[in-house]
Computed example of a mutant assay.
Amino acid sequence: MKQITTAITFCLIIANNFVFSQTTEEIKAKEIIEKSINATGGKELLSNIKTLYSKSSTVMDGRNVNYITKEMAPNLGSFEIEYEGRIVYRSWFDGKTGYETVNGQKKIADQEEFKDKHDRKYIMNEVAYLDSELFKVKFIKTDKDEKLNQVEATAKDGSITNLYYDTESFLLKKEEKKNPNKSSFSTILCTDYKKFGELTYCSKNIFKSENGDQVVSLIDLKYNKDIKKSDFKF
């Protein structure tokens, strides 16, 4: 019996040391993400958001345009560009295949652009970051001067998103997305938040680019209403 007890104790020590060494950074990252979830409405609210509609305004090629996005759990989504009340471009994913409409013509789009859609399970990204089947997260550092906590989230396809959360409010302030497979990199800043119902959501984004920054201001946001599966059919 003593030998069995000793063996079990030894195994528990090894297991505890392994868990600690493997998940210290992950645990801290998830704590920060959970605090961000609480700051934006709570885990119950974010987990129960099954559809999301947003309409934003921006300037493209000197013209005032609107961006319209629609999402439905687990992985349906569409993006539209509206100019003078008319949809001039649309791309969408029906859960299996990605499509686009250009100059009024519907066609199957480049499926590489929709590769990450197949693994989606949630509307709200922060909830997805906590799912170890979808993302591996780790705490990187705290920038005391900028007052930001940096968390790295690596998706199943190898793409990496660096998330920068305010150390006081825990609201997301910046995203840096890298996809080694596509040699792509993008930076998005969030400069303002507003409350829509019970949900606190980023209402002003700045998309950084070598060709000039693009400011996108949120006009309208709705969740769990006015979106149907038929919105994503070809």
Rank of each mutant, 00 (worst) to 15 (best):
V127F: 10
K30R: 14
T154Y: 02
D61M: 14
G77R: 07
C202W: 02
S184F: 01
Y67P: 04
G77T: 07
D61T: 10
D119G: 06
V215Y: 02
R86F: 11
K136F: 09
F93A: 04
A153Q: 05
N38I: 08
F135A: 10
N125G: 09
S56V: 01
W92F: 15
N66C: 09
I8W: 06
Y129V: 03
G98W: 03
F196S: 02
E82T: 04
V137I: 12
L218Q: 02
R86K: 14
L189S: 05
T154C: 06
G42E: 08
Y129H: 06
Y223C: 06
K225R: 12
D143W: 01
N224I: 11
F139S: 05
L218I: 11
F185H: 15
Q22V: 08
F234D: 05
Y53I: 08
I140A: 12
V65C: 06
F10P: 00
K173V: 13
N181V: 07
K229S: 13
I81C: 04
K35V: 03
F10E: 09
I13D: 02
D94F: 11
N162Y: 13
M124Q: 10
Y53K: 14
L172F: 08
K229L: 11
V102E: 14
D157I: 09
S169L: 11
K156A: 14
I14L: 12
S217Y: 09
L134Y: 01
V19D: 04
V19W: 13
D119I: 05
E82C: 05
S209H: 07
I4K: 13
T6G: 15
K147L: 08
N179K: 07
I160Q: 09
E133Y: 04
D166P: 05
R120F: 03
S186N: 12
L163H: 11
K55S: 12
K222R: 12
I81S: 07
L46P: 03
